[in-house]
Structures are given as structure tokens and as C-alpha cells.
Write a protein that binds this DNA or RNA. Structure first.
Lengths: 152, 152
DNA sequence: CTATACGCTTACGTAAACGTAAGTGGCGTG
DNA sequence: CACGCCACTTACGTTTACGTAAGCGTATAG
């Protein structure tokens, strides 16, 4: 049952002008492919990060959208805000060498890298502190389980 | 100028019943001592984490409040939410061995430690990815500065 | 008396990234 | 035709930890 729904991406009867060889992907497929929710994809679009074409109201994601989404997800992974990602993407120019984009990317990346390093330092500190706390608490628990209401 | 304001904690004429030897600290002092803002102290109070005594409307922090604040800040440092910190503090019983509190603390700490470990793994991954990105971008920049509009 | 400094309260604003509810529509199937 | 599934839109809700503004009282220095 229900066998003509998955796997066959947009081979149905639509008359959207489409370049040959372009595989259009619908939102459900996209979500599965990239492990995000539909909400997320619509949200990214709302934020101007994605601009899928439409078949009526239905979103159809092109190869480019997939590339963009990959970048978005990479950006998020390394801790960029969506705003940063957008700013970088907006600088993309199909013509030209994109020097500006590259420079901005490099700048943001280096700053973010510095932030991440600081974060890691803090994180390591936190871990040490917590481990210490754990051992202290374990000690107290060991005491208390035998002896009750000792020092105040 | 302005010499009777700092350093001498609450030796002014107030008739608040006070245990001998207790040093009362006002909010400004507290903020400086712990490196937090007044807003933060009031916020913590609002959340039930601190309960300074009052001289009229003025907050006076006791030794205990300082101890509690230390705990709060430690908790925050290791990534506990204020809610967690409160939950733990609320379990404190001046009498008794506080077994319950200790158990909860231990439990939360271990879970948090696990979270931090995961975070560190992700963070390290992110750092590697970013470093890679940086080098790639540097490469492209080096190209582009000589050769313009190459591959699309 | 007046200018500061310090403190108080109430309450809306902020940031990020979606979650979730509510109501609607198109398409293919039994 | 009713059903289920997929998709759409609008829009308010969530979370955390405060920031910040507005307006007002109190105490001290000059």
C-alpha cells in the first residue's frame, strides 16, 4: 500500500519550466535527506537562506538549494548564527571571484575559531570543576550513609 | 571625596536585629565582590535563589547569602540551569545529613558531566571543521588574488 | 539646598531556532 | 465519496538569563 509516494522525486505531472537533468526535491524528501524538520526548511526560507522554486504552493528544492542547505548546516555546526550564514551567502556572486565573500568568510571563521577555543577552555574548566564536585559529593555520601547528622 | 561609602560594610545606624559578628553586605558591594550586576542579584532573588534580609527596602546580604551565591555561580559555571541549582539548594536541610540533596546533586552532576563530554566532542569536531574551512578559504583567496573568475 | 550616588520596583525587550496549534487544500486510493 | 497523507499558511509559544528603561525614594557631600 502507498507505493507511489516515496523515492520518485517529482516525476509527476507538473508544468513548471525546468532545466533538463534537474532533480527537484520536495520538502519531505529534503527533510529526510538532511535530517531536519519541515519546519526548519520553511524557517530557513523565511529567513532568506533558501529559495526553492514553487509548483503552485509546493516547494521544490533544486541542486543549488541542497548545496546551500549543506552550507547552512555546516555553518550551524561550527557555531555560526543563521544571520552570519546569510550574510556570507548573500555575498555570493555567480560571476566574479567572490573575493569579498571569501574575505568575510575568513574573517568570521577566524573569529569564531577564537570563540570556540575560549569555549573549549571554559568547558574544560567546567569539566574539571564538576569532576571535583562529583568526587566531593561521593565522599560526603559515603560518610552520611554510615554516620548521620555530623557536622553542620 | 566620597570616603564613607566603600569598605565599611553596614556599620551605619540601622536597627535591624542582627547576630553579633555578622557582616551585612549591600547589593553594590556584593556585585563587586562576585563580579555580577545588581540586576543579576535581584534576579536570583526573584527566582528564590537568594533571600537577603532587609533594612527597609535595602537588601542586606549575610554570610549565608554569600555562600549560596558562590554555589550558584559554581553551578552556572559547570552548566547547571538556575532551576537545577535552585532544586538542589531547596533540598538543603540545616539539620540532617542531607542525603537527599547529595544524591540529587550527584545525579545531576553526572548527567551534566556526560552532557559536557558530548559538548566537548561536538566542539572539537566544530573546531576541526572550521580549521579546515579556514585553510580552504585561504587557498581560494590566494588563487583569486592572482587569477580572476575561474571555475563556476 | 542641590547634586550625586545608591537603591528600589515594575515591566517590557532581547536573542536563537525553531515547536506547535489551527485550519485549509490537493492528490491518489479503496 | 470519504480517507489518509503530504503540503501550505499564519501566528503565538518556548527557553534562559538577564538588559534596560522609567520613575521614584533616601542618604550624603558640598
Amino acid at each position: 500500500m502507498n507505493m507511489m509516494r516515496a523515492g520518485m522525486p517529482a516525476a509527476t505531472a507538473n508544468d513548471v519550466p525546468n532545466e533538463p537533468g534537474e532533480e527537484l526535491t520536495r520538502i519531505g524528501e529534503m527533510a529526510k535527506l538532511f535530517g531536519v524538520t519541515l519546519r526548519t526548511l520553511r524557517f530557513y526560507e523565511d529567513k532568506g537562506l533558501l529559495k526553492p522554486i514553487r509548483d503552485g504552493a509546493t516547494r521544490l528544492y533544486t541542486h543549488r538549494d541542497k548545496a546551500r542547505l549543506k552550507l547552512i548546516l555546516l555553518g550551524r555546526k561550527v557555531g555560526f548564527s543563521l544571520r552570519d550564514v546569510k550574510q556570507i551567502m548573500d555575498l555570493y556572486d555567480p560571476a566574479g571571484s567572490n573575493m569579498r565573500q571569501l574575505k568575510v568568510t575568513l574573517d568570521k571563521s577566524e573569529k569564531q575559531l577564537a570563540r570556540l577555543d575560549r569555549q573549549r577552555a571554559l568547558l574544560d574548566e567546567a569539566i574539571v570543576d564538576l569532576q571535583q564536585l562529583v568526587s566531593v559529593v561521593r565522599g560526603k555520601l559515603a560518610d552520611g550513609s554510615v554516620q548521620n547528622a555530623a557536622a553542620n
